[in-house]
């Protein structure tokens, strides 16, 4: 039995993950944390979750002591609470993604949590996507391009993406120095109705069931997976980021594709 805490549990991806894991009560005891007890606007009506009171913590991650108490007793924390786009501006990114991520990792260290699965974003690599070579590849004008991997330099284009790089840097710190297992997922474009968000975005799409599968594989990964970064994409055509690494390390097998 694995005790799993999902932060930001009323978000789109976090809620799908919650619903998936609670269906296996013999394997997971799932708790949720959020700063309000209501679903995000992005969540479709049929995916609204119901977290029992004794499995729910109300917190905005601004207070380290509160976070530490919330995660104590957990084996794995799936950290999805964040400003999901950066559209809330600098203050929102600062509070939720910069300070919130630090409090989360530090709270997990203090509480002895063994693993953090950190929700990063494809946006940390977004700069590649608009380069000419990648535009040509995506449009079909070229068939070859260097597939960007987790080992390539990051290419953020906004504060939100930079805040995810901060979170990945913390993941590295807590894995290397504090010996926690920290796995980062650079999540692609996930939408509530699971349809392609717009024409031409199929390259970075990820269906909800694929991202939930990858999160679950990270929760279940062998203890000796200490740090890694995976791209969370469906099996898309014209995909310019690497998903083979996630297959090799945690057995990710996407079933959808854009």
């Amino acid at each position: 039995m694995t005790n799993v805490m999902i932060t930001g549990v009323y978000g789109l991806i976090a809620g799908s993950t919650y619903n998936h894991l609670v269906r296996e009560p013999d394997r997971y005891a799932v708790c949720g944390l959020a700063r309000r007890r209501q679903p995000s606007d992005r969540v479709p009506a049929d995916e609204v979750i119901s977290v029992p009171d004794d499995r729910f913590v109300l917190s905005d991650l601004s207070d380290l002591k509160q976070v530490t108490e919330a995660v104590s007793g957990m084996d794995v924390v799936v950290h999805m609470a964040a400003d999901p786009s950066g559209q809330g501006g600098w203050e929102s990114v600062l509070q939720s993604n910069v300070i919130g991520a630090y409090n989360l990792f530090e709270g997990c260290r203090l509480a002895g949590v063994e693993r953090v699965v950190f929700a990063s974003s494809i946006q940390v690599s977004a700069g590649y996507r608009r380069e000419e070579a990648y535009e040509r590849f995506r449009s079909g004008a070229a068939d070859d391009v260097h597939v960007v991997t987790h080992l390539d330099p990051v290419r953020p284009l906004n504060l939100y993406a930079s805040s995810k790089i901060w979170g990945e840097a913390l993941a590295r710190v807590y894995a290397d120095v504090h010996k926690m297992s920290c796995l980062c997922i650079r999540i692609g474009w996930v939408v509530g109705d699971d349809k392609l968000p717009q024409p031409g975005a199929g390259d970075i799409w990820c269906s909800r069931r694929d991202i939930v599968q990858l999160i679950q594989r990270c929760v279940d990964a062998p203890d000796d997976v200490r740090f890694d970064v995976f791209y969370g994409m469906s099996n898309n055509e014209r995909c310019w980021v690497d998903v083979k690494h996630a297959r090799d390390v945690v057995g990710y097998e996407p079933v959808d594709g854009g």
Partner: peptide, 29 residues
């Protein structure tokens, strides 16, 4: 090299990774 993944060891060096991410953003955008 500068192309190898960063390997910060505490919030201080992670903050430098953050600063470099901002540098990349302000340069590209």
């Amino acid at each position: 090299t500068h192309l190898d993944p960063p390997r910060p060891t505490e919030p201080y060096s992670a903050s430098k990774v953050w600063g470099e991410a901002l540098a990349r953003t302000y340069s590209d955008v």
